[in-house]
Simulated assay, not measured.
Amino acid sequence: MPPSRDQSTHDEVTTAFRVYLQAMLDGDTDALDDLLADGCALTHVTGYVQPKDEWLSQMRAGQFLYHRIEERHVTVEVEGPK
């Protein structure tokens, strides 16, 4: 039996999230640029809301280096018509 729409969507979102995390670890700013919408912003643990372009620029300059990312729990909620 094929997976349900909700399960397929969950799997697609989870896979995309893991690709995003790997791109962060790899410092692959081109992949991150493609994965993230142009108007998105990231909120740091300090509360600073940083535009995507600024974040990617700082990554390219070596100001953000990710050495390890630990995925603890991912929750995906599927909304909308079935």
Rank of each mutant, 00 (worst) to 15 (best):
L56Y: 03
T15R: 12
R72T: 09
V78F: 08
A37Y: 03
A23S: 12
Q58G: 00
E12P: 12
T14I: 09
Q7R: 13
Q50H: 02
F17Y: 12
R5Q: 15
Q50Y: 01
L65W: 06
L35R: 05
H67R: 11
M1E: 05
T46E: 03
H44Q: 05
G47K: 02
V45T: 15
D30P: 06
A61I: 05
D28F: 01
K82F: 12
E71C: 11
L21K: 13
M59L: 03
D33R: 13
D33I: 06
T14R: 15
I69R: 00
S57L: 10
D38P: 14
V13T: 14
T29F: 07
L25Y: 07
M59I: 01
V78Q: 03
E77H: 14
P3Q: 09
A23H: 06
D28T: 01
R60G: 10
L42Q: 08
D38Q: 11
T75D: 15
A31P: 00
P81S: 09
Q50L: 04
H73K: 09
L25N: 07
D34G: 03
V78W: 00
V74C: 02
E54R: 05
L42G: 04
V13S: 09
E77F: 15
D34M: 04
R18T: 10
A16L: 15
R5E: 12
K82P: 13
H10R: 13
Y20W: 09
S8T: 13
L36N: 09
L35D: 01
G62C: 01
P3I: 11
R18G: 06
S8D: 15
L56T: 06
D53W: 02
P81D: 10
V76W: 06
T14M: 13
S4P: 00
Q63N: 10
H67G: 07
L32W: 10
E70L: 09
R18A: 10
T14C: 08
V19Q: 12
H10W: 13
A23Y: 04
T43E: 03
F17K: 04
E12Q: 14
A41C: 15
E71M: 08
D38M: 09
R18K: 11
L65E: 15
L21C: 15
T43A: 03
S8E: 15
T75L: 13
G27K: 00
R72V: 10
E12M: 14
V76I: 05
G39E: 03
P3L: 14
G39T: 01
E54Y: 04
P81V: 12
T15L: 11
A61V: 01
K52V: 02
T29M: 03
G47E: 08
V45D: 14
M1C: 07
